[in-house]
């Protein structure tokens, strides 16, 4: 009977981990064209290694198979040369990694920017105070009550958008307007299911009316280039453009009641 030759466990572990690592890079960076951020890849790989170790060590037999070569490397007198090489290379690699991580660079530090800054409970705009918990779009009701009027309001909102917003947020509302490339952070992509689809209309009203300078102090400094639109748009225009944002993207504002 021929005994099936198996790849040693330790090598299996290395191959799987390397395979998954390069698999991520190949899939995201090459095939999909959207690179995988290093910070996320590090987190992913930590738990991939944990998962592989779990599978390889839950039986005694498999654990021994994995650990024996490492033990032999440390304890077996016949592996003295290899041991010495490994014992030099490993600390050296650790040292190089530490040195390169701590080496000062011209790279700006990474930012933990939140896409949805928390709104205040009340806001001031157009010379009035608004309670964001109860604030609703006064035109939303026409969606059911008077669809023709609603279409007209959406069209007017579209005009506002084209005149004021599309330069940054794009004519497809995807955040890729002509000026977008010059801005960091880039303008919001309204088509993304993680943006306006998650938010109530009162939130959008707050963001448009008070713009970048109206962002909360809690998470300062903000670097948004969003203008204070209450200086340029009327309250009505702001609500209309909100109708347009949702209508064009097909999203619905966040709400708590069934239609």
């Amino acid at each position: 009977m021929i005994k099936k030759r198996r790849i040693p466990r330790l090598l299996q572990l290395v191959l799987i981990v390397a395979g998954v690592y390069f698999g991520f890079i190949l899939t995201f960076d090459v095939i999909l064209g959207q690179l995988i951020p290093k910070s996320l890849l590090t987190m992913y790989m930590f738990f991939v290694i944990t998962g592989v170790l779990m599978v390889f060590t839950f039986t005694e037999e498999s654990t021994r198979e994995l650990i024996d070569p490492i033990k032999a490397l440390v304890e077996d007198p016949s592996k003295k040369v290899l041991r010495n090489i490994v014992f030099v290379i490993v600390p050296l690699l650790a040292g190089i990694y530490t040195y390169s991580s701590l080496l000062p660079s011209f790279e700006a530090p990474v930012e933990l920017r939140t896409i949805h800054p928390a709104p205040p409970s009340k806001m001031k705009a157009y010379g009035k105070r608004f309670d964001l918990a109860t604030l609703e779009n006064p035109y939303r009701k026409y969606e059911k009550e008077d669809p023709d009027k609603f279409r007209e309001l959406v069209r007017e909102g579209g005009d506002v958008y084209i005149k004021g917003c599309q330069y940054c947020h794009g004519d497809k509302l995807d955040g890729k307007g002509p000026y977008a490339a010059g801005l960091n952070p880039t303008p919001l992509n309204f088509q993304d299911v993680g943006t306006i689809a998650q938010l109530q209309e009162s939130y959008i009203f707050w963001r448009i009316a008070t713009g970048g300078p109206g962002l909360p102090a809690e998470a300062a400094p903000w670097i948004s280039s969003m203008p204070i639109w209450e200086d340029f748009l009327s309250e009505d225009e702001t609500w209309k453009v909100i109708l347009f944002l949702y209508d064009y993207t097909g999203h619905q504002p966040r709400s708590w009641e069934h239609e």
Binding site: L35, P37, S39, E107, A108, A180, D192
Partner: peptide, 14 residues
């Protein structure tokens, strides 16, 4: 969490 090079490559934080 994106480095500036990653931000540039992705064309934004999304």
């Amino acid at each position: 969490v994106l480095t500036n090079a990653e931000l540039k490559s992705l064309g934004g934080p999304y």
